[in-house]
């Protein structure tokens, strides 16, 4: 089974402070990984290291076998990895069409010639409409991002990452700031979108243990910069000590098996073999 992303014995220190110590994790093709942990556990640093924004002090981060330590966001996007943000992060004055067009035109390498027409570029237009369709944003295509509701902004943020057609997507609290009732529908939408857009793996950072339990294939718990546990949800949520260490709450409801990135039996069996 192919490994998409692999971190091996990653350490990241700032002077005397060790933000990450010997962190190893891997994301296989078709997997949905959740990273959990209390505030200050090193989640943000780990995300920044995994996305090539920070170079690890020691250890190695590889995406599809090549080192991506400190390569930076543009190169990351080029290699097929996208990132969504915790806080709503949009281009307020750009329309939905333009926002998705930004990602599509970088993926299709359209910016070398400043005189190339955007409106006549069928390939960009098709890519934009395809992603808008997946995220139910078609009717909003010509609205500026600032006019969207909070939930739609969040969707647009993630949708723009999808327009890069990434193989792996890393999302930081995809449902933060969204009402409890909408959380599940957004997660279902995301997973459905991944399936349609050909995304091979998802890493999410999430505080909401209901969502973690329900959608993850594997949970990586961090504490004080170390990996405390790397388990399947069934195992993870059977260990009260582990849950207490991470959040200190009741064990949440486990997910039904159906809602996942890969629906075909072949990949499902691959996944269970790997875990």
């Amino acid at each position: 089974m192919t490994t998409l992303l692999e971190a091996r014995t990653v350490c990241k220190s700032y002077g005397d402070f060790h933000a990450l110590t010997d962190v190893s994790l891997s994301v296989a093709d078709g997997e949905f990984i959740s990273i959990v942990g209390p505030n200050g556990a090193g989640k943000s640093t780990l995300v920044n290291v995994l996305t090539g924004l920070l170079r690890p002090t020691s250890g190695r981060v590889a995406f599809r076998g090549t080192d991506i330590g400190g390569i930076g966001p543009v190169e990351l996007a080029r290699r097929g990895m996208a990132r969504g943000f915790q806080l709503v992060n949009v281009f307020p004055e750009l329309t939905v069409r333009e926002t998705l067009g930004v990602a599509a035109s970088s993926r299709l390498k359209r910016t070398g010639n400043p005189l190339r027409s955007l409106v006549r570029d069928r390939e960009i237009a098709d890519a934009v409409e395809e992603v808008a369709e997946i995220f139910n944003l078609r009717h909003r295509l010509d609205q500026p991002a600032r006019a969207l509701s909070q939930g739609e902004k969040k969707l647009l943020d993630v949708a723009s990452a999808f327009a890069l057609k990434p193989e792996l997507i890393l999302i930081d609290e995809p449902t933060s700031g969204v009402s409890t009732g909408d959380k599940h529908s957004i997660m279902e939408l995301l997973i459905d979108a991944c399936r349609k857009a050909g995304v091979r793996g998802i890493i999410q950072v999430e505080h909401d243990m209901d969502l973690v339990a329900r959608y993850s294939d594997r949970i990586v718990a961090l504490q004080a910069g170390r990996v405390l546990a790397d388990e399947k949800p069934e195992v993870f949520f059977k260990d009260p000590a582990l849950i207490a260490a991470v959040v200190g709450t009741r064990p949440p409801q486990l997910r039904p098996k159906a809602a996942n990135l890969n629906t075909s039996s072949e990949t499902a069996s691959q996944r269970s073999a790997a875990c």
Binding site: P73, F85, N89, V90, F91, P92, E93, L94, E98, T99, G101, V102, S105, S106, R110, T111, G112, N113, P114, L115, R116, S117, L118, V119, D121, I124, D157, S160
Partner: peptide, 17 residues
């Protein structure tokens, strides 16, 4: 009105994103 111009506007709006 080119993809180049669109990228410039994206930078104006939010360079990190």
């Amino acid at each position: 009105r080119s993809p180049f111009g669109l990228h410039l506007q994206a930078i104006r709006e939010n360079a990190q994103k």
